[in-house]
Each structure stands twice: as structure tokens, then as C-alpha cells.
């Protein structure tokens, strides 16, 4: 394998897209998460262009000598990755729509169970199972979360 000098522009573009994507992935609203996924996946796809090296001729067997062909393998991989990213976007979009239909907003809510246990800790109380005689403070029933 010959050493290839990576294209600096593509590296910077990929880094910028991934950074913007990660920033959006830290948001709470599902539509922003969706945009984050789009940006980050495009950034990752750009990395594969860096990997495949400078653009050369189409890699058809026999059309040209091997040194003048582009490396087809990263292109095959990135094509798979792009298809997977497309499916991810579709799925997150449907999640966002469903969330909006149910709660009227597309924010991801906190986990009720976690919050309840955190409140017990904040109030320095023991859990309800510590002593059966104490009044239960467990409110969100697990079965309700599972039904």
C-alpha cells in the first residue's frame, strides 16, 4: 500500500460537521437530535472520502491500470453507512412525531423512576422497601411503565 497524503480540507470539513452534530446531540428536543444525527453522519461519511485518497478513475476491472483507479472499498462502506444513516433519520423522525403526538412537545422527558429515587435521596429518606411499616413513597409503578 502506498502512503497517501490526506486532504486537509476534507478533514476540517469532517471535523466541523461532527462537532456541530455532537453539539446538537446534546440537546433535549428530538428535532435537534435529528439534525445532529444528520450532520454527524455526513461528517463521518466525509472521513471515508479522506480514507479513499485522491479521486481517480472509476474502478472497473480492465478499464485502466490499477494505479489509476480509485479505491472502491471505502466507497462501498460509506454507501452502506449512508443507507443506515437514512434509516436512522427516518426512525428518529417517527419517534419525534410520536413523542409530539403524546406529550405535545418533542422534548425527551426525564425518567420518572430515576427522579423519584433522586428525590428520596434529596430528602434523605429511606426507600419504601427498607421497612414495610413506613409509608410508601414509591409512586411511579414499574408495571405502569411496562404496560
Amino acid at each position: 500500500m502506498t502512503a497517501i497524503a490526506p486532504s486537509l480540507t476534507l478533514v476540517i470539513v469532517a471535523g466541523f460537521l461532527i462537532a456541530a452534530g455532537v453539539y446538537l446531540l446534546l440537546e433535549r428536543a428530538l428535532t435537534r437530535l435529528l439534525l445532529g444525527i444528520v450532520l454527524a453522519s455526513n461528517g463521518v461519511a466525509t472521513l471515508y472520502l479522506v480514507v479513499s485518497g485522491p479521486a481517480k478513475g472509476a474502478p472497473f476491472v480492465g478499464a485502466r491500470p490499477a494505479e489509476e483507479m480509485s479505491d472502491p472499498l471505502p466507497q462501498a462502506m460509506v454507501l452502506t453507512a449512508i443507507v443506515i444513516a437514512l434509516a436512522s433519520v427516518a426512525f428518529v423522525l417517527s419517534l419525534a412525531y410520536r413523542q409530539w403526538r403524546i406529550t405535545g412537545s418533542d422534548d425527551v422527558p426525564d425518567d420518572a423512576e430515576d427522579e423519584l429515587i433522586k428525590r428520596l435521596a434529596d430528602r434523605d429518606e429511606v426507600s419504601s422497601t427498607y421497612d414495610p411499616d413506613t409509608q410508601s413513597t414509591t409512586t411511579a409503578d414499574e408495571e405502569d411503565a411496562t404496560a
Binding site: D107, D110, D111, A112, E115, D144
Partner: peptide
């Protein structure tokens, strides 16, 4: 946020 979550649970 919690009320959202519980609302969803209910």
C-alpha cells in the same frame, strides 16, 4: 420535566 414523564406513564 418529571410531570411530563409521569403524564406519559399515566
Amino acid at each position: 420535566r418529571l410531570s411530563d414523564a409521569i403524564g406519559a406513564v399515566v
